Simulated scan of single mutants.
Amino acid sequence: MSKSIRLSEDAYERLAAHKRDDETFLEVVLRLAGERSLLDIAGVLSDEESTVLRQVVEERRMRP
């Protein structure tokens, strides 16, 4: 079973920009729709782990 959807030219161009050479548009939509949000991983780290991670990121940002 399949469904048809309408896209504006702009939406089509944006979708096409994400398309890989070996992908169909169906595969692009499924790949992009399957991406996880950062909210999906909220709470994964303990308070201690998140503190260490913040420190590491901050140190890396300060490097030239």
Rank of each mutant, 00 (worst) to 15 (best):
R6K: 07
K3V: 11
A11W: 03
S8N: 04
E49S: 03
V29A: 13
V52D: 11
M1K: 02
E27G: 01
S8W: 01
R14D: 10
D47Y: 01
I41L: 12
F25Q: 06
V56W: 05
E49A: 04
E27T: 10
T24H: 00
L45S: 05
S46F: 02
I5K: 01
I41K: 01
E35I: 14
R20Y: 10
E59G: 07
R36N: 11
E23F: 09
D10H: 09
V56C: 00
K3I: 10
D10W: 05
V28M: 01
L30F: 07
L53F: 09
R61N: 09
R63M: 14
S50C: 06
I5E: 01
P64M: 03
R14T: 07
Q55F: 02
R54P: 01
F25Y: 15
E9M: 09
F25H: 09
D47I: 00
E9Y: 08
V52S: 04
S2Q: 09
E48K: 03
D40M: 05
E58K: 11
D21V: 10
V29I: 15
D40Q: 08
E59Y: 06
D47F: 00
M1G: 08
T51G: 07
D47H: 00
L38D: 13
S8L: 02
G43Y: 01
Y12S: 10
S2D: 09
I5C: 01
A33N: 10
E48I: 00
R14C: 08
F25D: 05
E59F: 08
S50A: 12
T24P: 01
R6N: 05
E13R: 13
L7Q: 04
A42T: 12
E59I: 05
K19G: 01
S4R: 11
E59D: 14
A16P: 03
A16T: 08
T24V: 04
L53V: 08
R14M: 12
E58Y: 02
S50V: 04
V28N: 00
S46M: 03
D22H: 12
V44N: 04
R36I: 13
L7P: 05
G34T: 05
E13G: 03
S4T: 14
R61M: 11
A17G: 11
V44K: 08
S2C: 04
R14I: 09
D21W: 11
L53Y: 04
A11T: 07
R20M: 14
L26H: 13
Q55K: 13
L15E: 00
H18M: 14
R31V: 05
T24C: 03
Y12M: 14
L15N: 02
E9N: 14
A33Q: 08
P64I: 05
S50R: 06
D10R: 12
A33S: 15
S37M: 05
I41R: 06
L32E: 13
Y12H: 15
E48A: 15
D21S: 15
R6S: 06
K19I: 06
T51D: 10
L53G: 00
G34A: 08
V57W: 02
F25T: 06
R6M: 06
D40N: 06
L15F: 06
A16N: 13
L30R: 15
K3Y: 14
D10K: 11
E49D: 10
K3W: 11
K3R: 13
E48Q: 12
V28Q: 05
V29G: 04
R36K: 15
S8C: 03
E49P: 01
Q55A: 14
